[in-house]
Amino acid sequence: MTLQRHDTQTRMSRAVIHDGIAYLCGQVAGPEAREGDIVEQTRSMLSRLDALLKEIGSDRQHMISATIYLKDGGDIAAMNEVWDAWVPEGHAPARTCVVAPMPAEELKVEITVTAAIKGS
Rank of each mutant, 00 (worst) to 15 (best):
I38L: 13
P103Y: 02
P88W: 06
S13H: 05
I21E: 11
P88V: 06
A104D: 07
K54P: 00
L49T: 10
Q61H: 07
D72M: 04
Q61S: 09
L3K: 02
L49Q: 10
G73P: 11
R48P: 00
R48I: 00
S65Y: 00
A33K: 05
A66K: 02
Q41N: 06
G57Q: 11
P31K: 14
W83K: 01
A94K: 15
V98Q: 05
P93S: 10
K108S: 06
L107I: 11
D50Y: 04
C97N: 00
D50W: 03
S120V: 12
R43W: 08
D19P: 04
P93D: 13
Q27K: 04
A15P: 00
G90L: 14
V16Q: 15
H62C: 03
V98Y: 04
C25E: 09
S58R: 10
T2P: 15
T96G: 01
D84A: 14
T96A: 07
M102V: 06
P93L: 11
T112E: 11
S47A: 13
Q4F: 02
K71G: 12
T10Q: 14
D37I: 02
H91G: 09
A104W: 10
L107Q: 11
S65N: 03
D7E: 14
Q41S: 07
V99H: 06
I111H: 01
G119T: 09
M79V: 13
V99K: 10
M1Q: 13
T42Y: 01
G36F: 01
C97Q: 01
T42Q: 04
P93C: 12
I21N: 04
M79S: 13
G30K: 08
Q9W: 09
L3A: 08
D59I: 00
T114H: 03
R60G: 03
H18C: 02
R11K: 13
A22T: 03
D72Y: 08
K71T: 07
E89M: 08
I76K: 14
N80Q: 12
G30A: 13
V98D: 01
H6T: 05
T114Q: 12
R48C: 03
L70Q: 11
A66S: 08
G119A: 08
R14D: 00
K118Q: 14
L53I: 05
A104K: 11
V16W: 10
Q61L: 05
V109D: 02
V28M: 04
S47L: 12
M45K: 03
G90M: 13
C97S: 09
D59G: 14
V99W: 10
K71E: 13
A92D: 08
C97L: 06
A51E: 05
P88G: 07
G74T: 06
I17A: 03
A22G: 02
V99N: 09
N80M: 15
H62A: 15
T114D: 03
I111V: 12
T42M: 04
T8C: 06
C25N: 14
H6M: 08
T42L: 05
V82Q: 12
V87H: 12
A15S: 02
L3W: 04
T112Y: 07
R95K: 10
R48D: 11
E55R: 02
S44P: 00
V98N: 09
E40T: 15
E55D: 01
E105M: 15
I117P: 14
A92G: 12
E35P: 01
D50I: 05
H91P: 03
A66R: 07
W83D: 05
V98C: 07
